Simulated scan of single mutants.
Amino acid sequence: MTEGNFVDYVKLYVSSGNGGKGSAHLHREKYIDKGGPDGGDGGRGGHVIMRGNQNLWTLYNYKFKRHFKADHGQHGSRGRSTGSDGGDVYMDVPLGTVVRDKETNEILFEITEQGEERIIAKGGLGGRGNWHFKTSTNQTPRYAQPGIAGEEIEVILELKVLADVGLVGFPNAGKSTLLSVVTAAKPKIADYEFTTLKPNLGIVDYRDHQSFVIADIPGIIEGAAEGRGLGHYFLRHIERNSVLLFLIPADADDIKEQYDILLDELKRYNPEILDKERIVAISKSDMLDDELKAELKEILDVELPVDYLFISSVAQQGLQELKDKLWKLLND
């Protein structure tokens, strides 16, 4: 999937159908001049329904089409004939889609399961025909109910990527390179900050034909929790990951300080994220000789409060050990 095709935020206008009018018809046929009421009910207006689809990974289908409208219910007719219901409109979305009311910003619901269906705009009920209103004192009611109007709402769809492992790090920490090496994903890679502007997903092949999904989240900068840089547009994707893999380059001025900054940004965005399993990978470690690596290990054993390991995506060092640790965390 190219970066331009990954859409994780759209605004939509949806409207359900109006209910059909009930009929006020009075029965008439040959030799029956004054038959009773036989007006049928109006049909229900069509719903707009959101449905989870595990084969979708993006909201790209809604990039260009922003208006969705269900059909109106048909009116009732003579002979107590009920009007047909308006056709429902189904909107397939990827799992992990959050639906918000655009006006209030309130979360209406989330789609997290395959085939899960939620009505986003309910069709109006059809009006009742006049035969419902016949009484002992009013044998020929000449009125019927109008149909109820459908609903209109503007919503925001936000996609939170559903991945087992989320890559967290500063720009140019080597996340895209790691993803390209351990999966079949082909993210854009270059030696400058913010190469990745959208999350990239890749499937890691593990032992015995098993696999797990890893997501390369765009690089964090200080102040991201307040919306600086790409801000909430990528931090929300981390909420869905089971394990967080912090990637910090071996040539960083202070590895512990970078880890603390990253952790603080996540905490300020959503403290619950800190309940997830965490592991640190020291990337670009092929630049370190054995002596430097040993010195750094002595420091990190004391300073880092979580498990860590040295890797090099370019030199293919430590990658199988990393897969083993991630698999263990995911299955514990």
Rank of each mutant, 00 (worst) to 15 (best):
G231H: 03
D251T: 06
L245P: 04
A252R: 11
R228T: 07
D253R: 14
H237K: 04
A250S: 15
E226V: 09
A224W: 07
I255C: 05
E257P: 01
D251H: 13
I248A: 07
Y233T: 15
I255F: 10
R228L: 14
E239S: 13
K256M: 14
D254Y: 01
R240D: 00
K256A: 14
L230H: 09
R228I: 10
R228S: 11
F234Q: 14
A250L: 08
D251S: 11
A250I: 06
R236W: 06
H237M: 04
N241P: 00
E226S: 14
F234W: 11
L247Y: 05
I238C: 12
L235W: 11
D253V: 12
A250T: 08
F234G: 00
N241L: 05
F234D: 00
E257C: 06
H232E: 14
R240E: 09
I248G: 02
G229P: 07
D253T: 14
G227L: 10
L235Q: 03
H232C: 00
D251C: 03
R228Q: 13
I255Y: 06
P249K: 08
R228E: 13
D251A: 06
H237C: 08
H237V: 02
G231P: 04
D254A: 12
I248W: 01
F246A: 09
L247V: 15
Y233P: 00
I238A: 10
D254S: 12
R236Q: 12
F234I: 12
R236F: 05
E239R: 14
H237W: 10
V243C: 10
H232F: 08
A224R: 00
L244I: 15
G227A: 11
E257V: 06
H232Q: 14
A225K: 01
L235N: 03
I248D: 01
A252L: 08
A225M: 03
E226F: 10
F234P: 00
G227C: 05
F246H: 11
G227Y: 07
G231L: 07
I248Q: 03
G231V: 04
S242I: 07
I248Y: 01
P249V: 04
E257T: 10
L245M: 13
I248H: 02
G231D: 11
A225C: 00
I238M: 14
K256Q: 13
L245E: 05
E226A: 13
K256F: 15
E239A: 09
A224G: 00
D251W: 05
L247M: 12
K256E: 13
D253E: 15
I255H: 09
D251K: 07
A224P: 03
E239F: 03
A224D: 08
E239L: 15
Y233S: 15
L230Y: 09
L244H: 13
R236I: 04
E226P: 00
E257Q: 15
G227M: 11
Y233H: 15
D251E: 13
Y233L: 14
F246N: 06
H237L: 05
A250D: 07
E257N: 14
Y233F: 11
